[in-house]
Design a protein around this nucleic acid. Structure first.
Lengths: 236, 236, 236, 236
DNA sequence: CATGAATGAGTGTTCATTCAT
DNA sequence: CATGAATGAACACTCATTCAT
């Protein structure tokens, strides 16, 4: 039944078209956001030309401004898409978590790796470090949308640990950065110095994170705190 | 003897000239390099205008190009000039150190702060991180002159601790970065996000380093390894 | 009889279509022209965006280009559409007028206000003035359709006044503009500087026209010509 | 004495050079201001490209921005140079004026013509009319620097006339525009419609102003106010 | 040697116009 | 016929670099 078929074909095509158009409003920005993330991370915010972003996304410069009113808004959208949009879900997970606090901390490190560190989003902290001074509005945005919720999340974990007697009392304000700094360092090593420092480039993230966790819980000291799931240290 | 005289005059003038030029080649670039360091650290490479560098150094834009053929060369000179080559001296100090390894580690953190963290040199890591992609040759230089000797120094401390039974066995390659990451993070926070993140800006370096040391030695765990909680600074 | 039916259907549809198109060609451009007049007068040719015209007319940008091949053609159509061709009717009124010539002049001012000054048409002079250089063909059209008949009409009034001994002899060519200039100035002040010059924005047209009339008849001089100070509006 | 001569020549050249450089800071902006006035008047503010201004002044785009920080500031400088800068001098002249007020008014019209109307500055009012809506800041500037002092100056003349019994009492707010409107109309006729309207283009400014003055003093009325220096009306 | 006026390529952003659906 | 997504030319403004003095 060629007619029916052809009709069906046409209908299918029309449906396809419709679906494609529907998706477009999401899809085009998606490609643009991906291209922007790549380029921003690689070259920095200022050094990235919007035309290049558009080109990499396969559209023209004008099209980019159809979806994002300015370069800065494009950047914010990149951050929202890749980081701040996920804090809600993340917070919920920790609300529901009912294991020990060390396990919670370990889960935190691992899920950071899975969702940020192992993805392109890991380039954003480096980006912010580089550009914060020159684009105060972006820095404020990042502070509000990423730093604040991120440090709050970690602080809550630490407080839980102390409240349950699993962690020693501490000054949370500083403790937070003991957790955070090695994570950010890992992210940065991937996107800047790592490109040319072999000892950074050869880091195995899983081992790095395991070492980070162990150190956080027990330190380097000779008698590790009892009850910790010790990961066997491996000497290379 | 007019000839002789004139010749002598000329010779004197030439010598004067030469001396002045010698001095200049050191003096003028010195001011320019200092100004450039400040501005590159503060604003990044791209956002720093050569005119501003020249102005801060008290010379004209034209003069800057008399000493550095391009902005890129100026940048390279800035980084090279400010990369500390003091690892030999530092190494010696640690050779002679005869206290406990935790004390040695603490001394390491403190002297890093005194000699790098608290000085302008603390801006170099941020600079390298931001621009490593754009100046790979410089990154290699940094890797060779700073990262390698720096991590080697830390690794030796850790090895000493393990050898003496003060530290638990560990994978040194990763342990090194547990020491290093929070230091670099502190340096970077001073020069980038700190400008707009209040919780970063309000960090007190001494407390930050103390927390870092405690965490390194004992971790967050509830039962700290005995004998390591003391915070007495030890002089080598 | 599917064929006939279908044909009939098609014919009906075509007729419907045709009718709709007919209506459209009048209706749609009408709304577009009205919107365009508003915006061109308010913002000038260059600063008016076709998208805004289309939006104000309730259609899409694409539709506008369906009716007008370019922004320039739209502009020309706007001006042509709004250039009053009512001078014949106006002339007749003045032919039949049988009051004094000052009263006739006063009626002229007032009816200019009623029919032009107070309406959207008052924007056309501003538009012509702003864009005459860029649209010489349009300026010629305006000159032919408006300036010439308008000045001729005023000149005839002045000639009547002189002929009847009500006005002093004068050089009509220049006298005409003494009547016209303050009218056009009033129109322009409404559409340009008035927006920001308070002393222009606060002008009350009726008082402005009254002052204009008095000045035309008697001047500023201390002893006004007798019998002309009365401001009674006269109906033709 | 060729040597002496050549030396002298060199000295002359050096002096010339020095003088030329001295002048440059004034001269270059002068050429730019002239070019800008021409183009702004001819094409409007928005439609004039700064590159074109620079090119007409014989310099590059960059050079223009060396002297004027933005296109808007260039415009303001044009207005200051050509109009508002002259009000001080103008005001003084009228302070010192000791003839009759009609003579003063006549002098006002004539000096407006000499200093504004007959010069390129006559294009500025048209410019402002065209652009006021789109550049509110420029409009405010013009209102503050030109309209306010200009109308104040005229108003003072009218007040003087009334105070001395030379003019009839009047509402100054409106009277001012009876003086101003025909002047501005004359200026505009030169720069927009005049380009294509022959009856505007053929106006002889001196006769136009004479007619304006007569009409202002005596009106069209049959019995001119006594004591006015009547200019014989000429019928073409 | 030192200057700073001059340059012009490069950037973010706008908007008339096109065209596939 | 109507739409609106896509385009790309155009423009104000910046800044590294040059060079005549």
């Amino acid at each position: 039944m060629p007619h029916t078929h052809s009709h069906s074909d046409t209908a299918d095509a029309a449906q396809d078209e419709h679906a494609r158009r529907e998706r477009r409003k999401d899809a085009r920005p998606g490609e643009l956001l991906a291209a922007a993330l790549d380029l921003f991370v690689e070259k920095g915010f200022a050094a990235t030309r919007v035309e290049e972003v558009a080109h990499r996304a396969g559209v023209s410069k004008g099209t980019l401004f159809l979806y994002f009113p300015s370069k800065e808004e494009l950047f914010k959208a990149v951050v929202r898409e890749n980081i701040s949009g996920r804090f809600a879900e993340w917070n919920e997970e920790f609300e529901r978590f009912d294991g020990s606090t060390p396990a919670m901390l370990q889960y935190c490190l691992n899920s950071w790796w899975d969702r940020i560190g192992a993805t392109k989003a890991s380039g954003i902290p480096k980006l912010m470090m580089s550009e914060a001074q020159n684009f105060p509005e972006l820095a404020a945005f990042y502070q509000h949308e990423v730093m604040r919720p991120g440090t709050a999340l970690i602080e809550r974990i630490l407080q839980r640990g102390v409240a349950r007697g699993e962690f020693r009392p501490m000054n949370y304000k500083y403790g937070v950065f003991m957790v955070l700094a090695p994570l950010l360092f890992l992210a940065m090593s991937k996107h800047s110095l790592g490109a040319c420092c072999d000892n950074l480039a050869s880091l195995v993230p899983e081992e790095y994170l395991a070492t980070h966790f162990e150190t956080l819980i027990s330190g380097f000291g000779a008698s590790p705190a009892p009850g910790t799931t010790a990961m066997e240290p491996t000497n290379p």
